[in-house]
Deep mutational scan, measured.
Amino acid sequence: SFNTVDEWLEAIKMGQYKESFANAGFTSFDVVSQMMMEDILRVGVTLAGHQKKILNSIQVMRAQMN
């Protein structure tokens, strides 16, 4: 498990989005775990492969939080 959203993004090789997530207010796992595709688009993730990777990881995160 990760301590910060930045660490999580690095771990899934999506570190290039750290600033975008932070600027959009997605700075805690409570918020990130609620993200939908529209949120991912809003933070500027436009590549389908990256969207899928982030969404898949969020689903895993949700499962671990319950």
Rank of each mutant, 00 (worst) to 15 (best):
D6L: 05
I54L: 13
T4E: 10
S1R: 09
V45F: 01
I58H: 00
D30H: 13
M36G: 15
F29Q: 03
S33H: 07
T46P: 04
I40T: 02
W8P: 00
S1E: 11
F29D: 01
M65N: 07
S57V: 04
H50K: 02
G44H: 03
V32R: 00
L55F: 15
I12V: 04
K52Y: 09
V32K: 00
I54N: 00
L55V: 05
S20R: 13
S33N: 07
F26I: 13
R42P: 01
N23Q: 14
I58V: 10
S28K: 06
M36W: 08
D30S: 10
D39P: 01
R42E: 08
N56I: 11
E7N: 07
V5K: 02
A63Y: 07
N3M: 12
S57D: 09
D6A: 11
A24Q: 09
K18C: 07
D30A: 14
M14Y: 03
I54H: 00
E10H: 07
I54M: 06
Q16C: 07
G44Q: 03
E19S: 11
R42V: 08
G25S: 04
A48F: 07
A24S: 09
A48G: 08
K18D: 02
A11Y: 14
L41S: 06
Q59N: 13
I40G: 00
K13M: 13
M14G: 02
N3F: 09
V60D: 12
F2W: 15
E38T: 09
A63R: 11
L9F: 03
F29H: 03
R42H: 10
T27Y: 06
F21N: 01
Q16M: 13
Q64R: 09
I12T: 04
G15D: 11
Q51W: 05
G49W: 13
K13N: 15
T27W: 06
R62E: 09
Q64M: 12
F2N: 05
D30R: 13
F21P: 01
T4C: 09
D39K: 03
I54T: 00
T4K: 06
F29E: 02
T27G: 07
G44P: 05
M65G: 08
A11M: 09
E19G: 08
H50N: 04
V60N: 09
E38L: 06
D30K: 13
N3Q: 14
V45C: 04
S28P: 01
R62K: 15
R62C: 09
M65A: 08
L47Q: 14
F29R: 04
T27M: 07
Q34E: 12
M35N: 00
K52F: 09
G49L: 12
S57C: 13
Q16I: 10
I40C: 05
D30Y: 12
N56C: 14
T4N: 11
N23M: 12
Q64C: 13
M35T: 01
M65I: 11
S33G: 06
T27C: 07
S57L: 08
K13I: 06
L55D: 03
G15E: 09
F26K: 05
N23R: 14
A11L: 08
A63W: 06
V45P: 01
G15K: 05
W8G: 00
S33D: 04
V32P: 00
L55T: 04
V43R: 01
H50E: 06
D6E: 11
K13Q: 14
Q51P: 03
G25I: 02
I40M: 11
M37C: 09
L55G: 03
A48E: 15
V5Y: 03
H50A: 04
F2T: 07
R62D: 08
V43D: 02
Q34W: 06
V45Y: 03
R42N: 10
G49T: 15
I12N: 04
F21T: 02
N23H: 11
M61W: 05
G25K: 05
R42K: 13
N3W: 10
V43T: 06
E7V: 06
T46C: 07
I12C: 04
L41C: 08
A24G: 09
E10G: 06
S20C: 09
V31P: 03
E7G: 08
K52W: 09
T4F: 06
K18V: 07
G44R: 03
G44C: 03
S57H: 11
N66G: 12
L47V: 15
N23F: 09
A11P: 00
A63S: 14
Q59Y: 10
S1Q: 14
A24L: 09
M61R: 04
F26T: 02
M35F: 04
Q34S: 08
N3V: 10
L55S: 05
A24C: 09
Q64N: 13
T27N: 11
Q16V: 11
V60H: 14
W8K: 00
K52Q: 15
A48I: 14
I12F: 04
R62Y: 07
